[in-house]
Simulated scan of single mutants.
Amino acid sequence: MRKLIIAMGGSLMIAAPFASADVLGVAANISYWDSDLSGEAGKKGDLVDLENELDLDSDSTANLSAYFEHPVPVLPNVRLNYTRIEQSGSGELSTQFDLLNGPVDSELELSQFDVTLYYEVLDNWVNLDLGLTARDLDGELTVQEATLGGEVSRTEVNGVIPMGYLAARFDLPLTGVSLGGEANLISFDGDSVYDYTAYGQYELSLLQLRAGYRQMGIDYEDSDDRLDIELGGPFVSAGLTF
C-alpha cells in the first residue's frame, strides 16, 4: 500500500505544473442514485447472499459533493463527496449464518466520505484531472431472526482507504453540453474498491444538471467481517457553480 501511495503522489507532483484553474471556482451538487445491490457478506467464515437470501432493497441513497479550484499551480484542488446508502429486507437463510437460521430481517447501512486532492492536467474543451482520494468507509449489516427475541448478527467494516482519482470531461463548444466520467479505485492484498461514473451534463448560467450511470464495488475485509458487494444504476443531479 505504501508503494502505491508514493507512486500516486509522485505522479501528482509531475502533473502539477501543467495546468491550473484560471480563476477561483466553487461548485456543489446533490444527486439521486437508483442503485441495485448484489454480493455477499462474511462473518467468521460464514457467507450470506445479500440479494437472494436477505432480499435487500434500496430505501434511500443520498449523495452530496462539492469542489474548490484555484489558480495556484503548486497547490492541489479539493473535492469532497459524501454517499449514504440504506437498504433493508426480509428473507430466509438457506444455510446457517453466524448462528442464525430461517427467516430474518436485515438492514445494510453504508456511508463513505471522500476527500480528494487533484490537479488539472488539461483545462480547455478537453478537461483531465488526476489526484488522490482518501475514502472513510463505514458499513454495517444487521441480520436478526424474525422471531420474538431472535438472535442478532452484525457485520461491520471500517477503514480509511487511499484511492487513485481520475476525471475527464469533453465540452461541446457553445452548447453548454458535455460528456464525462470519473473514477476512484484501488486494489491491494485481496481488497479492492472502485467507484465509476459516466454522465452527460448541461450547464445554463450557474445551474449544472447531470444524468448518467454509477457503478460501485467494495471487496473489503475487516478482521473476521467482510463485505463483497456491487451497486449500480442511473443517477440524476443538480448543482450550482460559481
Rank of each mutant, 00 (worst) to 15 (best):
Q201N: 14
V78A: 11
G91Q: 03
L179G: 06
I14R: 05
P76L: 01
G102D: 06
Y165P: 02
L207Y: 07
E51T: 08
A19W: 08
I30T: 09
W33P: 03
L108C: 02
E51Y: 04
L75Y: 01
Y82R: 10
T61W: 00
D55K: 15
W125T: 15
S88W: 00
M8N: 08
L141T: 03
S111G: 02
Y82F: 07
S237T: 12
A183F: 10
M8K: 01
L24E: 07
E53F: 01
A15K: 00
V104R: 00
E69I: 15
Q144M: 13
S223R: 14
E140C: 01
M1T: 12
P234C: 05
E151W: 03
E230V: 08
L166H: 02
Y32D: 09
Q112C: 02
S90L: 08
L4Q: 14
S11Q: 09
A211N: 13
G91T: 07
S94A: 14
D46N: 12
V26C: 11
Y119C: 00
A16P: 02
L4K: 10
L24F: 15
D222H: 10
Y194T: 02
V143G: 03
L108W: 02
M216Y: 11
L122G: 04
R169N: 15
E145P: 02
L64H: 04
V78W: 08
D138E: 07
S58K: 15
E107Q: 08
L185R: 12
Y119P: 01
F68I: 08
A183V: 12
P73M: 08
D36S: 15
A167E: 07
G9F: 14
T133A: 09
F68G: 01
D136L: 02
G159P: 01
R79Y: 12
T133M: 06
G217D: 01
E140W: 01
M8L: 10
G102I: 12
F68K: 02
E120G: 14
L206R: 05
T241W: 04
N52S: 15
G159K: 00
L185E: 12
S187R: 08
R226S: 05
L137T: 10
D34V: 13
L47M: 13
S106Y: 01
E53P: 03
P17D: 10
G233W: 09
N63K: 13
A66G: 12
P162I: 09
L24S: 08
E230T: 13
Y165L: 06
V23A: 15
S65M: 13
G176K: 12
I229F: 06
G159L: 04
V152Q: 10
S178A: 14
G131R: 00
D228P: 10
G232W: 01
W125E: 11
A167I: 05
F242M: 14
F188A: 09
A15I: 08
S223V: 06
D222N: 07
S178D: 13
D136R: 03
T155I: 09
A134T: 11
A41F: 04
T142K: 04
V160E: 07
Q87M: 13
F188G: 03
S153R: 04
D195R: 11
S187L: 03
N124A: 15
S223L: 11
T241M: 12
E140F: 00
L99C: 10
N101T: 11
L56N: 00
E156V: 01
